[in-house]
């Protein structure tokens, strides 16, 4: 469903016309367009945005942990179209148990490391990713540090013995 101040804008209107169920809700604040997308539509939507609406860049991809709220995670896609000089923010809400999304590496190869980072630091799984390993932390690390229930100080690792 589109917010009233977005109905006139070409890109959200085109997405609404492409698939009326894709956009769950939307907002336009501080000059930034945000669309909440249903999880099963994100991969076809990204492919459509790149192929037909000139969004040739994935600027970044990250997650937000809203703990203890449910749905707990929000995965954020920061898209950019250089030809149209336009930016778009897509958000997908995910539950706290086994958060998983299809990978968009097949659309933008640059999504590779961003998805690995979100997997490493938030524990969000991206199915279909070619090489989903930890990227920042060592392989033996337990837990996902950017989750809100992971302490900033005093976690179980001690560096005194090293």
């Amino acid at each position: 469903m589109l917010a009233d101040n977005l109905k006139e804008m070409p890109v959200p209107a085109a997405i609404e016309a492409w698939d009326p169920d894709a956009i769950l809700h939307s907002s336009f604040e501080h000059g930034e367009t945000t669309l909440w997308i249903s999880p099963d539509k994100i991969l076809p939507l990204c492919a459509h945005l790149k192929a037909s609406l000139q969004f040739n860049r994935l600027s970044g991809l990250t997650a937000i942990d809203l703990y203890p709220q449910e749905p707990r995670f929000e995965v954020v896609y920061l898209l950019h179209s250089i030809p149209a000089n336009q930016r778009l923010k897509l958000k997908v809400a995910l539950p706290g148990d086994n958060p998983a999304l299809p990978s968009v590496t097949s659309v933008w190869a640059g999504a590779d490391w961003y998805e690995r980072e979100a997997f490493d630091l938030f524990g969000v799984t991206f199915t279909g990713h070619p090489d989903l390993r930890r990227i920042m932390l060592p392989d033996y690390w337990e837990g996902h540090p950017l989750r809100r229930d992971f302490p900033t100080h005093g976690h179980k690792y001690s560096y005194k013995d090293e």
């Binding site: 930034e32 945000t34 600027s59 970044g60 937000i64 954020v76 920061l78 930016r87 923010k89």
Partner: peptide, 18 residues
């Protein structure tokens, strides 16, 4: 409450804080 992202041209390219 809310979120914002403003891209900036750093010497290396696009830097932005979401």
């Amino acid at each position: 409450a809310g979120d914002a992202y403003v891209p900036v041209e750093s010497p290396r390219g696009e830097i932005g804080f979401f």
